[in-house]
């Protein structure tokens, strides 16, 4: 019973983390049809910026509890700056080209940003553990959990909820759906597709950076952290269906609970779970659990 409770809670925490890193990826794909490999870099940039700022913040001796705001500010700043630069400076010249070509372009951005981070922050690691320690531990069903980790669930729910509301309950969301449905038609109807693309990419980038910033207090931030994250995030969004927010949530839950089960019962197959589920889903439903299938017109 204790194991089951541990699996459930661990699983949901891990799923929240997965959802945070995957939601920006799926949003960008859903609106722009861009599978953004550089999402891994945005995650890492968010983590680095947060780690560095939190370090400076605590050195300055300012009130500790406001350090959570520092994490969020770091993520927003990274997303705004890098999102704008990548989309305006590069991706906009690629619209209309083959999906695979655009994937390669974002792969190039990923490679470049890997070294940019080394140049800016060096190769040693940062450990901004303070925000996580501040909140202490809590005991649930006799099992100890770190409160900060449980807060990730809340962050994921809020982030997911805001994106969902933005897409489905606002005027802007309606415009986005029009763009998703038919880019040219939307443009002809007077919708500023260019601005919507830039906005979507920046929001997606902010979400990626937020994933990194929220993770920074849990890990040692060092070169290469974006590498593994991007393939796992791919797996999550593919399982749920590329471009679907609900799908990303379900995909994250499946992978999160699956992984937690593996960790507690059969640690050897941990890495297997993610890609095992992804392969299985692609085999049965290539468009993912919540994806749409498109038939070519001839």
């Amino acid at each position: 019973m204790l194991t089951l409770a541990a699996i459930m809670i661990d699983g949901v925490i891990y799923a929240s983390w997965l959802f945070l890193v995957a939601i920006g990826l799926t949003l960008i794909y859903g609106v722009m049809n861009i599978l953004n490999v550089a999402h891994g870099s945005l995650y890492a940039l968010g983590a680095y910026a947060a780690a560095w700022l939190v370090g400076e913040y605590f050195l300055a001796g300012w009130p500790p509890f406001a350090s959570f705001a520092v994490l969020i500010v770091a993520a927003a700043a990274v997303g705004l700056v890098f999102g704008t630069v990548i989309e305006r400076g590069l991706l906009r010249f690629m619209y209309g080209r083959d999906e695979i070509v655009i994937v390669l372009v974002t792969y190039a951005v990923f490679l470049i940003l890997e070294d940019v981070m080394k140049l800016v922050w060096g190769v040693e690691s940062y450990m901004p553990y303070q925000p996580r320690y501040l909140l202490g531990n809590v005991s649930i069903a006799g099992l100890p959990f770190v409160v900060y980790d449980l807060c990730l669930i809340g962050v994921a729910v809020v982030a997911g909820g805001l994106v969902w509301l933005g897409l489905n309950r606002t005027r802007l969301g309606k415009l986005l759906h029009a763009v998703i449905f038919d880019r040219e038609l939307a443009s002809a109807m007077g919708i500023n597709v260019t601005r919507i693309f830039t906005g979507t990419f920046v929001v997606g980038a902010m979400l990626g950076a937020l994933g990194g910033a929220a993770t920074a207090p849990l890990i040692s931030v060092s070169p290469g952290i974006g590498v593994e994250v991007i393939v796992i995030a791919f797996a999550v969004v593919v399982i749920g269906g590329l471009g679907s927010i609900e799908g990303a949530a379900i995909g994250a839950l499946i992978v999160g609970l699956g992984r937690a089960t593996a960790v507690h019962m059969l640690p050897e197959i941990e890495l297997f779970i993610v890609f095992g589920v992804m392969s299985l889903v692609l085999v049965v439903r290539p468009e993912g659990l919540f994806g749409r299938r498109v038939v070519r017109k001839i």
Binding site: D98, E270, L271, F272, S279, L282, P286
Partner: peptide, 28 residues
Amino acid sequence: FLMARYRGIFFALLNLAFSMLLYGLLVN
């Protein structure tokens, strides 16, 4: 038999998934 059904990024990603499965197998 499986791959021949996929194109574009799905082909690319399904291959990625299977390579990562082998990776998971090897590191364990």
